[in-house]
């Protein structure tokens, strides 16, 4: 408990620990979205979203429920393809390459852009098999020992290895909620993605498990470009370097997290941050 309490304290240092905003701006841009629209049948869910997402930093999408932040996140790895009737317009480029180009292989794209979901969703398999699933389908390991190494290092990076090292063959569904979510992060890391999308990864977790995940996100940003959707403004403030505010399917304002929270330009952003809408 003492150790966990320490973690909570450390991550709650929030804005001070965030890197200098100018550092972020100097980082190369990995993802660019221009005029992205999404229709679900006749209903338009997103109206022309344009945003740049920098390399190896955490970008947070905030906004009230139903504002389109998760929808936009799911455009980035084309998860909206699996929803019948969803239509995506505009362009999204990863390293200058259009991810909606007809020649692009969705399977390959999703291996480069991993995803962690709102509710922990480990497969009904063992902890080991959960993490090994991605490497297996993509043929990333040449031998059993390679695979073991990937699994162990992914679990380590997700901060879960010490807790589960003696029970790798037990079902992943038997873990606690927070451990399940870290297992899902390990599962995403195991494929070797460059970008990790997180869709409200802590909304089903208690405060202590949340603090552990936030700590982990902070560590992961050294190697991965992270985009996180969150309900909690405090969380956005704690973990992200850049923040984008969505409202009713529009991107209202974006910028360095510190600016958004201390000095928002737009009236709507201001209202949301002050708790007047949402």
């Amino acid at each position: 408990m003492d150790m966990l309490a320490g973690k909570v304290k450390k991550t709650s240092l929030n804005l001070d620990s965030a890197m200098n905003p100018t550092d972020v701006l100097e980082r190369p841009i990995r993802l660019t979205a221009r005029d992205v629209t999404v229709h679900y049948g006749a209903k338009q869910a997103l109206h022309g979203i344009s945003i740049d997402i920098p390399d190896r930093a955490v970008t947070a999408f905030i906004g009230p429920s139903g504002c389109g932040k998760s929808t936009f996140l799911r455009c980035i790895n084309r998860m909206n393809d699996t929803i019948e009737g969803a239509k995506v317009g505009g362009t999204i480029k990863l390293d200058g390459e259009d991810i909606y180009a007809p020649a692009l292989d969705v399977v390959e794209l999703r291996a480069r852009i991993g995803m962690v979901f709102q509710k922990p969703n480990p497969f009904p398999k063992s902890i080991y098999d959960n993490v090994a699933y991605g490497p297996r389908i993509h043929g990333l390991a040449k031998s059993k020992s390679d695979l073991d190494e990937i699994v162990v290092s992914s679990l380590r990076k997700a901060g879960l290895f010490e807790e589960v090292k003696d029970r790798l063959q037990e079902p992943g569904t038997g873990l606690s909620g927070g451990q399940q979510q870290r297992l899902c992060i390990a599962r995403a890391i195991a494929v070797g993605p460059e970008v990790i999308l997180m869709d409200e990864p802590c909304s089903a977790l208690d405060p202590i498990a949340t603090a552990v995940i936030e700590e982990l996100i902070d560590e992961l940003r050294e190697n991965y470009t992270i985009v996180i959707v969150t309900h909690s403004m405090q969380q956005a403030a704690r973990v992200s370097q850049r923040t984008a505010f969505f409202h009713l399917g529009n991107l209202i304002e974006q910028g360095p997290t510190e600016d958004i929270f201390t000095n928002p330009v737009n009236k709507q952003t201001q209202d949301y941050i002050m708790g007047r809408i949402g």
């Binding site: 969703n121 599962r187 995403a188």
Partner: peptide, 23 residues
């Protein structure tokens, strides 16, 4: 969410069905 999990890892539709859905 289970199917999404598999798709999110870059599994194809038939891989998702064989490895996740059917079990």
């Amino acid at each position: 969410t289970l199917r999404d999990g598999a798709y999110g890892l870059g599994a194809t539709q038939s891989e998702t069905i064989r490895n996740v859905l059917l079990p």
